[in-house]
Amino acid sequence: MKNIPQKVIHRYLRHDKKFPHVWCAGCGNGIILGDLLRAIYNLGLEKDDIAMVSGIGCSSRMPVYVDFNTLHTTHGRAIAFATGIKMAKPELKVIVITGDGDVSAIGGNHFIHAARRNINLTIIIVNNNIYGMTGGQCSPTTPIGKFATTAPYGSIEPNFDLCELAKCAGASFVARTTAFHTTEARQIFEKALQKKGCSVVEVISQCPVSYGKMNNISSAVKMLELQRDNTLPIAAYEKLPEEKRAGKIVRGILHDVEKPEFIDQYQKLVDSLSLQKQEKFDESKKENKSSKSEESKSQE
């Protein structure tokens, strides 16, 4: 028998009952999950130490396929559940998998507040610019003029820039990549997973079945080519003259700063309180001793 080398991703997939997966042919979710698993492998993280939390949507189905501590929550609430898990067990590496609708529409509040707290979560947003699971409705990231089943005449609403949003709200690590740029995605995931703080990675992905079909993009391959052609690494983008920047999407690590992290701050608070308690205890001991000695003196 031929010795078939084990692929890295196979170390992490759940092998019983879960396959075939729910994703359509041409979807970016499998590619992105593969990149994430390779990043986890490269960092040597233990399966037991990873909690993967998701909300509702196509990308939020990722946790069921991987052999970690996995939690598939309600629509938009993954980050809030993850906040509880991280506070309870800071030693866990908590990864949130979410989509553009999940994180920026119904879950927008939890997203900005996780960023504000700068809590040590790795939030991976799969942005396909549409609600895929429910069949192609417009989302807060559907660009103006693009079509969706609930924007049959083209969207008239401006779309969110999720990276700007995360940065402004206080996240200490913000990056963008695409399903096409797999090596870059893996490298960014590695950095995000190592970052102590709220790290947000937006991965532009393709939904050929809903978004592609409604917006006259003929195939998944064509959509991947658009990811290649319409995006630029940040260094290249910054060199572009202003007039050539229109329509280009920036990739790479957009924001990476050191700032106080929430779990750390909480622990510091706990430590300072227990120190105060200890000091109080010591003082009262001293007082007791001195008052006792005074008493004994007065008795004398």
Binding site: A51, G84, I85, M87, V270
Partner: peptide, 27 residues
């Protein structure tokens, strides 16, 4: 916090119960 246990004021009640469930899942 005095006991080393956890308190958080969440951004709304939806987040509150979600965090509570998350913490319970973690034990």
């Amino acid at each position: 916090p005095k006991r080393g246990d956890k308190f958080i004021q969440m951004e709304d009640e939806i987040g509150s119960i979600a965090a509570v469930l998350g913490a319970s899942i973690a034990g």
